[in-house]
Amino acid sequence: MSLNRADVEKIAHLARLAITEDEAEAYASDLSSILALVEQMNAVDTQDVSPMAHPLHMAQRLRVDEVTEVDQRERFQSTAPHIEAGLYLVPRVIEQG
């Protein structure tokens, strides 16, 4: 699969990365060559193979329901880019329910 500039722009938008037109061209070429590498996977028939998401054959451990964390707002917000009244500020959020 070879990607063109429009593909790259769509992907960059999904990933929320600003890219210039020149960059889009360069990424199109880089990503296409990476995909060519990746598509070597197609040489194998995996019809009857189950996917492996994880190297461990373990089940999820369950935590006891207890409150263990204390308020550390001041510490957590000490490196925040923009705060006010304990809130993280961002450019106005358009209603989204």
Binding site: D7, V8, I11, L14, A15, L17, D30, L35
Partner: peptide
């Protein structure tokens, strides 16, 4: 950024 984009594409 390259890897983020490849991964985004592979999951899309």
């Amino acid at each position: 950024k390259r890897r983020i984009m490849i991964g985004t594409y592979a999951l899309s």
